[in-house]
């Protein structure tokens, strides 16, 4: 369910831009924040708020990798595997995370806690290897650090109710600002 408040934010965005259609991307972020990923309800809400067809909105949503097509884990871990991180051994880091989490890259743990992804250069090459967890950076990662991080996340998630995903892995939505 997309809340009425979220729909209103989408309509406000459509009014904020010189042309309403420009509000598609930020509105998709709002939809994703509401439901954790891009659902049919989410697409419909965006389409209605902006005055587009659902198919049209879907074609935009599927172009961009940050709009999730499936429910991701509560912690989405992205490890950069591009050239500078490669030169600093990111592959060993990915392998370690796969072992610790018992999943392969691209997968989500059965308890819905973790999704492990690889990412293209994250603009952090000077502090390689790097990962992001729910879009926040951890830089100069060592294998020991990654072990400690997983321990810490597991402790944190144990404190929460099992089985219920958080609404969103995104820490913020960048609605246009000002005025």
């Amino acid at each position: 369910m997309i809340s009425e408040q979220a729909k209103q934010r989408m309509r406000d965005l459509a009014a904020r831009y010189p042309v309403a259609r420009s509000a598609v991307m930020p509105s998709l972020y709002i939809a994703q924040q509401e439901e954790g990923y891009i659902t049919h309800d989410g697409l419909r809400a965006v389409a209605e708020a902006i005055g587009l067809t659902v198919d049209d909105v879907e074609s935009v949503a599927t172009f961009y990798t940050m709009y999730y097509q499936q429910q991701p884990g509560k912690k989405v871990i992205k490890v950069c595997t591009s050239i500078s991180c490669y030169l600093r051994n990111c592959d060993a880091l990915v392998t370690r995370l796969e072992e610790r989490l018992g999943i392969k890259r691209g997968e989500t743990t059965a308890d819905g806690n973790f999704t492990l992804m690889t990412a293209e250069c994250l603009a952090s090459c000077g502090t390689a290897p790097v990962l992001q967890v729910n879009d926040e950076f951890v830089e100069n990662v060592t294998l020991e650090m990654s072990d400690a991080l997983i321990d810490e996340w597991e402790r944190e998630l144990r404190g929460q109710e099992p089985g219920r995903g958080q609404a969103s892995p995104l820490p913020y939505t960048a609605s246009p600002t000002g005025s």
Partner: peptide
């Protein structure tokens, strides 16, 4: 207005950036 991308290297190319900004 700040506009946030959503994961696509090609949007750094100036004309693709404009398409993205226009909601495509």
């Amino acid at each position: 207005i700040m506009h946030r991308g959503a994961g696509a290297y090609i949007c750094g190319e100036e004309s693709a950036l404009m398409e993205s900004l226009e909601g495509r």
